[in-house]
Computed example of a mutant assay.
Amino acid sequence: MSDHEFDPNPARRNFYGRRHGKTLRRSQKGYLAEDLGALRPRGVTMDDNPDRTPIDPGAIFGDARPLWLEIGFGGGEHMVHMAARYPQVGIIGCEPFINGVAMLVGKIRAAGVQNVSVHPGDARDLMDVLPDASIARAFLNYPDPWPKTRHHRRRFVTPEHLLPLHRVMAPGAEFRVATDIPSYVRQTLVELPKAGFELISHRAEAWPDWLSTRYEQKALREGRLPAYLSYRRV
């Protein structure tokens, strides 16, 4: 298998990071039990799609609206904000950390947004089954920093993640990256052009429609300055 060919079988894929944190509150368990099933896109997991057959993007929201993808949505505040601001699009969020999923589902219920779909797992599982050029915009907000040099290969901005992302994004689609880790910025600037993404902007000011997340607020309190990078899929 070459450097640019990856095994699409999630059963054989390495995963780094946490899937569970503190014990969920009763209300959060209720959100997951009552709401998550209807929010999940069908055909993503090995259980319901063992052959990894491509899914129909139009079936996720029942129409041909543009699809956006948020990779690692944390507590979900940015995702719900964007869903409310852009009701004409459908936003799919991927997050393996179940505590974050529970927080998002609670926010979806409170906000009443109808244009959100949730995959409670690795974004690569979803990208395995999405058709080519099916995503119109993608977000990577404050991803796991993996600060130790020997762990940089675990970051999202590596070929194992970026090449599948490039495949599922439409030509000209925007990919936004926000991080407060200087080495993550450097790695992003190096790796994304190699994966077929063109830098549009690299700035210290957030996008006009940005909602500051709890991770950004923590970074600012601790004196780390965020960077906001915009790329175009070419």
Rank of each mutant, 00 (worst) to 15 (best):
M1E: 14
S2V: 03
H4V: 13
F6K: 12
F6T: 07
P8H: 14
P10Y: 04
A11D: 15
N14I: 00
Y16D: 06
Y16F: 14
G17T: 04
R19Y: 07
K22I: 01
L24N: 05
R26W: 09
R26H: 07
S27C: 09
L32Q: 10
A33E: 15
E34N: 11
D35V: 04
L36A: 09
L36C: 10
R40P: 04
V44F: 11
T45P: 03
M46Y: 10
I55K: 07
G62S: 10
G62V: 11
D63V: 07
F73H: 15
G74K: 12
M82D: 04
M82A: 02
R85A: 13
V89L: 01
G93R: 08
F97K: 12
A102N: 02
I108T: 06
G112Q: 08
Q114A: 07
N115L: 00
V116N: 06
P120C: 09
D125H: 09
D125Q: 10
L126M: 06
L126G: 11
D128N: 15
V129N: 10
D132P: 00
S134Y: 05
R137S: 00
A138M: 05
N141P: 02
Y142R: 14
Y142F: 15
Y142K: 12
P145N: 00
W146Y: 09
K148L: 01
T149C: 01
R154W: 12
F156N: 03
H161G: 10
L165E: 01
H166T: 02
A170T: 00
P171Q: 03
E174M: 03
R176Y: 12
R176V: 07
A178V: 15
S183G: 00
Y184P: 02
R186K: 10
E191F: 04
L192W: 06
A195G: 09
F197Q: 08
F197R: 08
L199S: 10
R203L: 08
R203W: 01
E205T: 13
E205D: 11
W207E: 15
L211K: 15
S212Q: 15
T213I: 14
Y215F: 15
E216D: 09
Q217G: 05
R221L: 03
L225G: 03
L225C: 02
P226E: 06
P226I: 09
Y231Q: 06
V234K: 07
